[in-house]
């Protein structure tokens, strides 16, 4: 490795950032395993399984944003964060609206 040539501060930065990615991988792995384990082994009812699994997915998505895309709440990151939050709002409106309307139509067709 040619890492020896780097100044101490850079070397330290690299170690911290590698740890950052490793932590992200570890958390994502745990959440994935938990989600599959809940479905495969926990024997909960369908409804509660789905609630648990969906919550785990939301947490895992946050972990990916935080550790792989480096989004956090610092002030200098606000533009990126605003864009994500706005997209999340649009996504929520369109997904919830679509599901609402289609399911409502379905019940009316019965």
């Amino acid at each position: 490795m040619s890492g020896d040539e780097l100044p101490a501060s850079e070397l330290e930065g690299r170690v911290t950032e590698r740890r950052h990615y490793l932590l992200g991988l570890l958390l994502a792995l745990l959440l994935t395993l938990a989600a599959f384990a809940v479905v495969a082994f926990a024997g909960l009812s369908g409804q509660s399984t789905r609630i648990v699994v969906a919550s785990l997915a939301v947490i895992q998505i946050l972990v990916h944003f935080r550790y792989f895309l480096h989004i956090d709440l610092q002030k200098s990151h606000r533009d990126d964060l605003h864009l994500i939050l706005f997209t999340a709002l649009i996504v929520f409106l369109m997904v919830a609206g679509t599901i609402w309307i289609l399911f409502n139509l379905h019940t009316r067709m019965l």
Binding site: T32, A35, F36, V39, G46, T49, R50, V53, A54, L56, A57, Q60, I61, H64, F65, F68, L69
Partner: peptide, 25 residues
């Protein structure tokens, strides 16, 4: 890199809402 990480995020949605939900229905 951003594109690749984003695809992994979409996959979290797919394995949860397609496969895990599908199996538990």
């Amino acid at each position: 890199a951003l594109f690749w990480h984003m695809l992994d995020i979409v996959w979290v949605g797919i394995f949860t809402f397609v496969y895990l939900f599908g199996v538990s229905l």
